[in-house]
């Protein structure tokens, strides 16, 4: 998948965040030297172990938190606070329980376009409720919905304000595997339709491979940083049922799992070398594979996973 080579839509420069030590000593630097760029229309996933500051980075991008040092620029302007330009999908869905599904989405739509009349607001909200497949449930309260349906409302709400960028903090972490799969497929479809720029945190390697164009791997904190960037070269449109037959699938997957299992710890050694290189290495599966494999997707040269290999899903502690 090609991304237009223009000036980066989102640029993060030398971001660092330190928290005062609970014991009163030196401040603890969770992450530092974080640099990355996201182009318009790109879907970027971030993964790494708990405590590396992924959520903090997302909150800084959202404007809900602030960095100790460093800057975030979106569309050439510095991010200094929350904005309707950046929609956020929270892990806990964060729906207002006293409002119905429709009212929750309408609340967002009315915030985005305060001058719209009631009819227009409703129409717009309904369009996004239909998009996530919740037509018929629009007058239900969140407490009457399943976890997956609640998260869909959260997605509808975030998309309804038509943000320039979408930020998702482990949106499917609390869902069961089946529901997660269904909603991932829907998200894939919606993002393809809307050409949405997305920054998403996930612990699920398969989710990252299915959805993203680029996967950023963070080393362990403290002094975490973006250690590697993996270009996800799997062609779109992607199908959950067929994606593992792509020749690039297992090289990418193995690379990610290896990182999470072993290499993420080695990068922890960087804390002793504060001026260690801050530019992450880029992994591109195109460099690994022989050309003939690309033309013969059915050939079984790529390593086949042992049957019954456990699904790797690192859950936030």
């Amino acid at each position: 998948m090609t991304t237009p080579v223009t000036h980066p839509f989102l640029q993060v420069e030398n971001l660092a965040r330190a928290y005062p030590s609970p014991s009163g000593g030196d401040a603890v630097t969770v992450f530092d030297h974080v640099n990355f760029r996201i182009h318009k229309g790109e879907f970027v996933c971030v993964t790494g172990h708990s405590g590396c500051g992924k959520s903090t980075i997302l909150n800084i991008l959202a404007g809900l938190d602030s960095a100790t040092t460093g800057n975030v620029f979106m569309d050439g302007r510095e991010v200094s606070g929350p904005s309707l330009d950046r929609g956020v999908i929270f892990q806990s869905h964060a729906l207002m329980p006293w409002l119905t599904v429709l009212q929750n989405v309408e609340f967002a739509v009315k915030s985005r376009w305060p001058n719209w009349n009631k009819h227009k607001v409703r129409e717009h909200a309904m369009r996004y409720i239909e998009l996530v497949g919740l037509k018929g449930a629009e007058h239900k309260k969140p407490s009457q919905l399943s976890g997956g349906m609640k998260q869909r409302v959260g997605i509808a709400r975030a998309f309804s304000i038509e943000p320039k960028m979408l930020l998702m903090d482990e949106p499917f972490g609390a869902l069961d595997a089946l529901t997660r799969g269904v909603i991932q497929d829907e998200l894939l479809k919606i993002c393809a339709e809307t050409q949405q720029t997305v920054f998403m945190i996930t612990h699920d390697v398969d989710e990252a491979i299915l959805l993203s164009d680029k996967i950023m791997l963070m080393s362990n904190g403290p002094h975490a940083r973006i250690a590697e960037i993996v270009n996800n070269t799997l062609p779109r449109p992607r199908e959950r049922s067929a994606i593992h037959k792509q020749p690039h699938y297992y090289p990418i997957r193995n690379h990610l799992v290896d990182f999470l299992v072993s290499r993420s710890k080695q990068f922890g050694a960087l804390r002793d070398a504060p001026d260690a290189p801050s530019s992450p290495t880029v992994f591109d599966p195109d460099d690994l594979l022989e050309p003939f494999e690309l033309t013969q997707p059915e050939s079984v040269v790529v390593p086949v996973p042992p049957i019954g290999k456990p699904h790797i899903h690192l859950v936030n502690a």
Binding site: L64, P82, L84, V88, F90, M96, A108
Partner: peptide, 9 residues
Amino acid sequence: WLDVSRTLE
């Protein structure tokens, strides 16, 4: 809920 209203300005 407060974060939602902040991001929605």
